[in-house]
Design a protein around this nucleic acid. Structure first.
Length: 514
RNA sequence: GCGGCCAUCGUUCAAUGGUAGGACAGCGGGUUGUGGUCCCGUUGACAUGGGUUCAAUUCCCAUUGGCCGCCCCA
């Protein structure tokens, strides 16, 4: 038992092989408290994030915030309520819901048996979960339709690539309990609006795969058509014909293109009701002025889809068939509720992948709002000031002001550097002199102008200043400087009156330098 | 899951069969209490494990991870 207490944090050197039994290098002396941090030297290999799983670092958070804000705005304005479901579900939910023969379930699902012998899975998508939740909570007793909005991690054991991860974040909108085509159209409109809000040029592609009867009829026809072209069909398509015939329409092989072009189209096999539904969806889309492309070859891989299916792809990737071009996808799934043992309640929804959206935002250099972490910085010089600054920090914080600090540093220069990096509007400076006088210096970080205020009024004064709209911040301006921006030229120079106590010379000398 | 390419400081890019250099970032300076530009200094890396070799970061193999294509998908 005594040997257990050393280095609880470091894992044993990974069961690499049997060779490295003794491990002579790292011999942490047990009592060693004095030279702990010396030099780590060789330790056991640092654990890595699992394949296909990523840390989201603070630098990237502004993208996440931006997307999240856009999504919440859309969800809110379209009347969707947030629902969260467990990340872990019993495996059978997805086996039945997503489909036993889909790739997602067959080879991509993280599933395992827990200590209690129960078979469970990390959700690979949201749709079965929210459908289950609808059934479990008897949502059909509430006024229909039920409109839900989701956001959270999903897991698929795939080979990672750019824009494809094993853990990724999906978000979606679902409408339950209403089969009217206007619901489909308005949902597509919401999706389209979302991408517009995000600043991503995206394209809506729609199709209808009809109801089950229509689809079966079409499948038969498609298969017999491809049988007749058997000699020219690629190997892959031959396999697909057996397993999931509709997928031949996705084939990218040169040779198959001609066959595909001539292939029967599903719209011709829609029965009266299905066709009617689709036409009305399109009419509503026209009414909503949503630009869309009819995509006769668009089919969805999951079993539960019916009628309207759609995808949203990045504008210029529309013809490139790159798989990561699909930013969002969805459709109607009227049959799922019954598959999961509920009443036959229609539903339609769509989901989008946040990582792909963010990837796109970065590729297109879409500007997203910066995350400001502090409004004010408190700088201190000398021990008495440092102590006094602690109280000031808390006083400001209690007023809801976000305060930056570097209490442990001594040099004012360094503290101002940090203040600058944080992008605060004001820095409060407290030195020996100010402590003795009971004052504080408030420095406007844009202009460099400083004013002396009574320490007691410091918080109120800062709040007053912060309440005023921030002057238009000159953007980094990555554009060439030739066409000078008239907006920048006549930038209003505010805060010029009302500071009788301003340290004129200080501020001016500052300005002269630049 | 299949095929291919790749792997050097935190990031990015070099060089090399005899253990690595720059840029950016970081940290510290450029005398007395002032940031955004400038100058100087400094920390810091050869993914892991085998093999070939007197010697491997460099060559070979495996593993791991990333990327690209396929499968599929958001």
């Amino acid at each position: 038992m005594t040997k257990m207490k050393k280095t609880p944090s470091v894992k044993a050197p990974a069961p690499a092989k049997a060779g490295t039994g003794s491990k002579p290098a790292a011999a942490p002396s047990a009592p060693g408290t004095e030279e702990i941090q010396q030099k780590p030297k060789r330790t056991a290999p640092t654990p890595q994030a699992l394949r296909g799983m990523k840390d989201i670092l603070p630098v990237d958070q502004k993208y996440w915030m931006h997307v999240r804000a856009c999504v919440e705005s859309i969800a809110g304005t379209f009347g969707f309520e947030r629902i969260d479901t467990p990340i872990l579900e019993e495996s059978s939910l997805f086996v039945r819901g997503t489909g036993k023969h889909t790739d997602i379930v067959e080879k991509e699902m993280f599933s395992f048996v827990d200590q209690g012998g129960e078979s469970m899975a990390l959700r690979p998508e949201f749709t079965p979960s929210v459908t289950r939740a609808y059934i479990n909570h008897g949502m059909w007793n509430q006024p229909q339709p039920i409109k839900w909005f989701t956001w959270g991690p999903v897991f698929r054991h795939e080979r990672p690539q750019a824009g494809r991860f094993r853990q990724f974040t999906q978000s979606g909108l679902d409408v339950f309990g209403d089969r009217h085509p206007v619901i489909d159209a308005n949902l597509i409109f919401a999706a389209h609006t979302l991408f517009k809000d995000l600043g991503i040029e995206a394209l809506v592609q729609v199709n209808s795969i009809g109801d089950l009867a229509s689809r079966e009829a079409y499948k038969n026809e498609l298969v017999s058509y491809y049988r007749s072209k058997r000699s020219q069909t690629c190997e892959n398509c031959k396999k697909r014909l057996l397993k999931n015939p509709l997928r031949v329409l996705d084939c990218k092989e040169e040779g198959c293109q001609a066959i595909k072009a001539e292939a029967p189209q599903i719209v011709d096999f829609l029965n009266e009701e299905s066709k009617n539904h689709f036409i009305r969806v399109l009419e509503y889309l026209d009414e909503l002025e949503v630009p869309y492309q009819l995509q006769p070859h668009l089919v969805r891989g999951l079993d539960y889809y019916s009628h309207t299916v759609f995808e949203i792809v990045g504008a210029e990737e529309a013809d490139k068939s790159g798989s990561q071009a699909v930013l969002a996808a969805g459709g109607r799934y009227d049959g799922l509720m019954e598959i999961l043992g509920g009443n036959p309640i229609p539903a339609v929804g769509f989901a989008w992948g946040i990582e792909r959206i963010i990837l796109r935002l970065k590729e297109k250099s879409v500007r997203v709002p910066d995350l400001q972490t502090a409004d004010v910085f408190v700088a201190q010089l000398g021990e008495p000031a440092r102590r006094k600054t602690l109280a000031l920090f808390n006083a400001l914080r209690k007023e809801g002001v976000r305060v930056g600090e570097s209490f442990s540093r001594d040099a004012l220069k360094q503290q101002l550097e940090i203040a600058n990096r944080l992008g605060v509007r004001y820095t409060v400076i407290l030195g020996q002199k100010e402590v003795l006088d009971g004052t504080a210096l408030i420095r406007d970080m844009d202009s460099g102008i400083q004013e002396i205020v009574d320490f007691k009024k410091c918080v109120a004064e800062l709040k007053r200043k912060l309440a005023m709209p921030a002057p238009p911040k000159a953007p980094p301006a990555p554009v060439p400087p030739e066409q000078e921006d008239p907006l920048l030229a006549e930038e209003p120079m505010k805060v010029d009156e009302e500071e009788e106590e301003t340290e004129g010379e200080d501020g001016e000398s500052k300005k002269r330098k630049k």
